[in-house]
Write a protein that binds this DNA or RNA. Sequence first.
DNA 1: TCTGGGGTCCTAGGACCC
DNA 2: TCTGGGGTCCTAGGACCC
Length: 426
Amino acid sequence: MKAIVDCNSFYCSCERLFRPELAKRPVVVLSNNDGCIVSRSDEAKSLGIEMAGPYFMAKRVIEDNGVAVFSSNYTLYGDLSMRVMDTLREIAGKDAVEVYSVDEAFVDLSIIPEEELYETAKYIKDMVEMWTGISVSIGVAPTKTLAKLANYIAKKNKEASGCVTVLATPEQQREALQQTRVNNLWGVGGAYARKIYDMGITNGWELATMSEAWAHRFLGGVVGVRLIKELRGEEAVDMKEELVEKRMIATTRMFGSTVTDINDIKEAVATYTSRAAEKLRRQHSAARVISVFVVTGEQDYSLGFNRGGTISKQATLPVATSKTQELIKPAVALVDELYKRGTEYKKAGVMLSGLVTDTSIQGNIFLSETKNCERRLMDTIDNVNFSQRDDMLKFAASGTDRDWKMRQEKRSPRYTTRWDELFEVS
DNA sequence: TCTGGGGTCCTAGGACCC
DNA sequence: TCTGGGGTCCTAGGACCC
């Protein structure tokens, strides 16, 4: 059996941890640029505030009901996430935990007898709450997909479930599937849900009884077959061994306001490249391919995000590198190729791919002394920026005034990671 | 007149997730 | 006025090879 441990309204819970007076007040957290609502407390949900809805459209409800609003504070959430994951590893053992996202982890419970699953899950929940102050919901079942379903059910009625649901027997699984619409299943998104409804299938149980051949034909080949198997209790999505390195690294942002000047775009792209290069070095990789994209003018939000005019260009480097200078140069050159005078730009991004292990990491005796120096320069920059302020040291190409910088007006202090923002007890 | 049957690698794009 | 920012996996199709 497997458990999925999922933090309740994670970002909101993080904010409340340091503002206990908000415990009963509705809370929401906004995306970058203060654009969308990405986390809602239960009280905010019951006010009808939509997940991923635009902030400006919910503003009225928010003001009328005294909802507390925060810009996202990823430094804080990242640190608390680490504490939650460390707690799980402490309880279940390092190898039994697979971190799935910032607020979720799968835990292998195969050594626990069936009749003790509920108590075990409850224990995990209590310990996480006691050690980190973050409340979680837990779903337990034979496969990842069914565990996600169990968790969905636990969250739907927290009072009745105590935030823990176990679907250990085929009967329990069947009942759960029957009462769940297909669009709420893990692995069924908007496109598949529509397709499935059109074929007259509405609940999870009906889907689980379809043939694998049918799934292969209509639900994306092997992906659909895996989904059907998982729903029947047959493991098809494995636990991953220790976190693998990323195969692609991206840094992209909307601009705070529309930008037309090529130099602003170059500064933004240089800044994003620096960020991406830091991520690259953190996982000891080097990149062979760099691509830059820009998004112009109006986007059609009826079709979802980022469907508007995206143009991109990529360059393949002669040698894979993790050095900021060597990445900024081609990135800026790509902007020259993409840029059109008189166009309004809303967003830009940098993607690094073709990742390989960085061989320049420990000074290499076959490399010239200058190469080793550059490597040490990167380490120094990363250290200063990590321990002091995010962009205390940066390349001149990143600019200094930043008209294009994103909005972030309501961010809370980084209580746990910055000396000058520590939580104070009086 | 008539022109195989594999393989690999790469890219673009679609679907999904949080 | 005002709508994140990351990621993953898979498939199809084209180029090229023998």
